[in-house]
Computed example of a mutant assay.
Amino acid sequence: MSIAIRPALVEDAPRITQIYVDSWNAGFGELMPPAVLDDARIARWAGDLTAGRWWVAEQDGVIAGFTGICPSRDPIDPHLGELDTIAVDPPYWRSGVGTALMNTALEALAAAYPEAILWTLANYPQGQRFYESTGWHPDGQTRADGHQLAYRQTFSR
């Protein structure tokens, strides 16, 4: 099965939102309250898709995951990139979709910034293993009373 990466479109918002909710609920389980799919969340994602740099991964013509980048929001720094979100529909976990999306995000981050940050849950080992396997390193920062950890990646130019 081949994976095709393309820019996300506003009309992808319903599918992206479904993936976000399903992957959130399956991945975070008891770590976070469940996410709910509703019209307000779809509208929020449609707005985000027009305001940032987003991509989707398609496998056999089906959107299987998505990712997006932006300038860092925490800390606010226009010279530091941020991996905003990466999410894969649970049936596509461990199929290469996440790695293909991460490679796309990292290429875009490296082209635009000397360094990038992402935030993840502190008690989320499967996410942390994935980030570390793709070159991210914990940087020691925390937020949300220690419930979130920062990971960084520096790019050579």
Rank of each mutant, 00 (worst) to 15 (best):
A13G: 08
R15T: 08
I16C: 05
T17H: 02
Q18L: 05
Y20R: 11
D22P: 01
W24E: 01
W24V: 00
N25T: 08
N25A: 04
N25S: 06
G27Q: 12
G29S: 10
G29F: 09
L31T: 05
M32L: 12
P33G: 12
D38G: 09
D38C: 07
A40H: 10
A40T: 11
R41A: 01
A46P: 03
A46I: 10
G47D: 05
G47Q: 12
D48N: 01
D48V: 00
L49S: 04
V56C: 11
V56S: 08
A57P: 12
A57K: 08
E58P: 09
G61P: 05
A64N: 00
G65I: 05
G65V: 01
G65R: 02
I69K: 06
P71Y: 05
S72Y: 11
I76G: 03
I76S: 07
I76A: 14
D77M: 07
H79Q: 07
G81W: 08
L83M: 15
L83V: 12
T85K: 10
V88I: 12
D89N: 06
P90A: 00
P91F: 10
W93P: 00
W93H: 01
G96S: 06
L101P: 05
L101Q: 01
M102T: 02
N103C: 13
N103L: 13
T104Y: 01
L106K: 06
E107M: 14
A108C: 06
L109S: 14
L109I: 14
L109R: 09
A111L: 15
A112H: 13
A112L: 09
Y113W: 14
L118R: 13
L121C: 03
L121F: 11
A122N: 04
Q126S: 06
Q128C: 03
Q128D: 04
Q128H: 02
F130T: 13
T134N: 13
G135N: 01
W136M: 10
P138E: 08
T142V: 15
R143I: 13
D145F: 03
Q148C: 15
